[in-house]
Design a protein around this nucleic acid. Structure first.
Lengths: 364, 364
DNA sequence: CTGTTAGCGCATTCAA
DNA sequence: TTGAATGCGCTAACAG
């Protein structure tokens, strides 16, 4: 309950269009409500509501009176009141783990580019820990809290999905998939397979993989790309050498460290497939330190095709990140508007972007 | 008003913990409210509220009953109801123009890093047009909509500021300044002056400036950096040559174009100061195309110190972007918690980051 | 065409 | 220590 007290006098000098109130010696106006507008316009609040929402025909003259009052009082409806009454929030929840990575930001940009021309608010949740993930997944997708939910790179449990379905909150996964939800999926397994296959076709036989921790709670992506790496090996009967896989926390610096580790092996690889472009950039730094010419002496391939990859001339797997964000909201907005439509389960293509960091292995 | 109808029968087979309803042949539960919890626990709603919010002492036994009911029904309070009743939204509005630029994203990261451990929601507004700017500034900072407002790189008009003050919404500017608001200011004029002064000290006398449109509606930053550019010239009695200034929409590609334009002048400059690192990266591309060695034949200095600048070895002006986001929210959260504290008006330092793209001009 | 009223979900005051 | 009643601002149903 609002705690401000009405104050009976008007303060001279203050430019105010409503009654004046005092709180701790500060002068300010009480928020304008639909009642203030109605009184000012000499009509009932129902009429004001009708005018604002065009929800029923209103006599043109009274309409003008109301609009005038709205303008004079600078009235903006309180969204909480509206939400409570309508059971609609006009808000979309957006949960993003790995918020600091370039790929998530690209997706976010895609989302914002379409949301800008809609009238939905975006509630942003950066997810850093498992506890946060659980809290957001359990408390945010609720009727009365959001009208729809966008989950980047998150794998909701069956329990999460059951709750979401019961609450009847349209939800779209971006980058992941689940049979009972809409999603814009990016197939990491086959993306990684394409990358490694490319190296194999160039003649490489000693190919390393560096990644995030495979057992990271959110780390299904490292695992999937590792699976693709293995599949490409299997497809040509090439054994997977465990010493050619390094895992560490995700950062360019760690990419550099892992590469140094692997390149200093007695029998170093001739190519490195990195889980992400950021890691791959670390690999390039390591190669420079070791005076290894890329791609002559070492081939490097990344994943994501972030902006920097273009600049660094990095061969990589393009994920259509921006586009995945765009598609994600579009699917979601459509699901909100048409609750009866069936799930949209899209798979975005993944493509090999050839640049200057891959070549056949040294003749040696 | 919620339009679902209660349905008298229970559906066998559905795992549900509340009454069951039907809408368009789909089975789902009606949202759980505090009344459901109260009924289940055999207490009044006031008691439930007290338990949830620890707002008054409750007998331990009844407390446990309530908590059990909350857990069984998986109850999460509807934020709109709470907001309406308390007059507090637990939401922060964040308005960001130039959403696609690297520097804004860095600031946003700073904000999210501190918001993650607070219990405030973030409402994100990407501002692309003047109309959007006005709409957001006029409708979002309202009591009942947000508890506080964070404005990146935006210069609210005096009218905007008057409204914000009347609404009594704590507001913090990041990158800009206004006497009546809190801000975390970054002095672009002196930052640019430092950049150009650096070039002058290296011996350059022909220094170009490429930028965003100076008359861009949000373009105070291009103008301020231009002012710094001019000041540095004036300080040593160097004339500002109009043909050494190009302006265009902000993108790396346009940075490249503007650089080509300027470098093809009959009397080309020996150094280019770019409004941003993104533009500066375009300049580097142009230099490569023209086979101009940087920094031997051409010095380039940027602005922002985005991540890419480090990678490209670009000399630039560091803005402490992440830090400015952090400080911005911290000031805001403090202002929300302590409404009586005076305005916080901070100025973050700006520093020259020397890398490999500036050197004395060719002996010629 | 329009004013009045009920009710959305909640916190809180007032009684008990 | 607790339940019932009130009101936050709004939309929509109802009654005129």
């Amino acid at each position: 309950m609002v705690q401000w007290k009405r104050f009976p006098e008007t303060f001279p000098g203050a430019v105010l269009n409503n009654e004046v109130f005092v709180k701790n010696a500060e002068v300010f106006t009480l928020p304008i409500t639909i009642h203030d507008v109605a009184r000012r316009a000499g009509v009932g609040i129902g009429t004001v509501s009708s005018v604002i929402n065009n929800s029923r025909p209103v006599n043109e003259a009274t309409r003008q009176k109301v609009l005038a009052a709205v303008a004079e009082l600078d009235f903006v409806p309180n969204p909480s009141g509206r939400r409570l009454s309508m059971g609609k929030t006009h808000t979309i929840g957006l949960a993003i783990p790995f918020f600091t990575t370039a790929s998530q930001i690209e997706r976010l940009r895609g989302v914002m580019s379409v949301i800008a021309s809609s009238d939905y608010d975006i509630n942003l949740f950066a997810i850093e820990t498992v506890a946060q993930r659980n809290k957001v997944l359990q408390t945010v997708p609720r009727r009365g809290r959001v009208d729809g939910m966008l989950l980047f790179s998150l794998n909701p449990t069956d329990d999460d999905v059951r709750r979401i379905s019961q609450e009847n909150i349209p939800t779209v996964l971006v980058e992941t998939a689940h049979p009972n939800l809409s999603y814009v999926y990016l197939d990491d397994v086959s993306g990684a397979q394409i990358a490694v296959q490319h190296l194999i076709e160039l003649g490489h036989r000693k190919i390393a993989y560096i990644s995030d921790y495979l057992d990271d709670p959110f780390g299904i992506f490292s695992r999937n790309r590792y699976a693709g790496y293995c599949r490409a090996h299997e497809a040509v009967g090439l054994p997977v050498r465990p010493e050619y896989h390094q895992q560490n926390e995700h950062s360019r610096e760690n990419g550099r460290r892992m590469a140094l580790e692997i390149l200093n092996l007695p029998d170093p690889p001739t190519a490195i497939f990195a889980y992400s472009d950021e890691l791959a950039l670390g690999v390039l730094e390591a190669a420079r330190e070791l005076n290894l010419n890329v791609p002559k002496n070492l081939s490097v391939i990344g994943y994501d095709d972030i902006e920097l990859a273009h600049y660094a001339g990095l061969t990589t797997i393009r994920q259509h990140l921006f586009e995945s964000g765009v598609q994600g909201v579009e699917v979601l907005l459509d699901a909100i508007d048409n609750p009866e439509t069936s799930l949209a389960q899209l798979q975005l293509p993944t493509e090999l972007i050839l640049r200057q960091t891959t070549a056949p292995p040294p003749a040696a």
